[in-house]
Simulated scan of single mutants.
Amino acid sequence: MSHSALSSLTLLVVEDEPLVAMSIEDTLEEMGVRIVGPAGSVSKALGLVESGGFDAALLDVNLRGERVDAVADRLAAGGIPFVFTTGHGADGLPENHRGRPVLPKPFTDSDLVRALSRHILSAGA
């Protein structure tokens, strides 16, 4: 996977932990990925989804105790590919989206790049 393939992406980042969000942003911006967000709440994420302007999303499953099910549902309805991030395993995923790709926390920069390459670029984003 080349960095140039990722550089064509605009990615919505939904993450409530500021240090994790900054790390994701730093890693991806170094490769030319444009970032929308990060959104640290479901309401902010839904607003960004409505505004559009991104190709795919990275969704933390739990935002300060609030589940991202509504965000995942909106993305799926719009045909926008996304990868969940979670430290709780597949059992913590929204029931309607258990088949979606998951990037387990904690993850490394290379894990993040691999997940986006495998699940987002291969989906045609």
Rank of each mutant, 00 (worst) to 15 (best):
D60Y: 00
G89H: 05
V71W: 14
K105C: 00
L11S: 00
L19E: 01
A125M: 10
D69G: 10
G65L: 09
D73F: 13
S51M: 15
G92A: 15
S110V: 14
E17Q: 15
A45S: 09
I80P: 04
I120A: 11
G87L: 02
D26A: 12
P94E: 01
M22T: 12
A45I: 02
F54T: 00
D55Y: 03
A76Y: 09
L116T: 01
A77R: 14
V33E: 00
G52A: 00
G78I: 03
V113E: 01
A123T: 06
D60P: 03
S117M: 09
V20A: 10
R98H: 09
T27C: 14
E30F: 03
D16W: 08
D26G: 05
V102P: 06
G87P: 04
L63K: 03
V42L: 14
T86M: 03
K44R: 14
P38V: 10
L112G: 08
R34L: 08
P101T: 00
G92S: 14
H119K: 11
S7P: 09
H3L: 15
S41I: 07
V13T: 00
S122G: 08
H97P: 10
D109G: 12
S2H: 12
P38M: 08
G37D: 01
S4T: 14
E30K: 12
L9G: 09
D111P: 01
A76Q: 15
G99W: 02
N96D: 13
L12A: 07
L63E: 07
T108W: 04
E15A: 05
S117T: 15
F84A: 08
M1P: 07
D16M: 10
V102C: 11
D69C: 02
A70S: 14
T27P: 03
L11A: 02
M1K: 13
A72K: 10
D55G: 11
L63Q: 01
V13H: 01
A90G: 06
A56H: 07
L9Q: 03
L6Y: 02
R34K: 15
E15D: 01
V13G: 01
M22Q: 12
V20N: 08
S122N: 13
P18D: 03
H3M: 10
V71N: 13
S23T: 15
L93F: 01
G37K: 08
A39T: 04
F54L: 06
A115I: 07
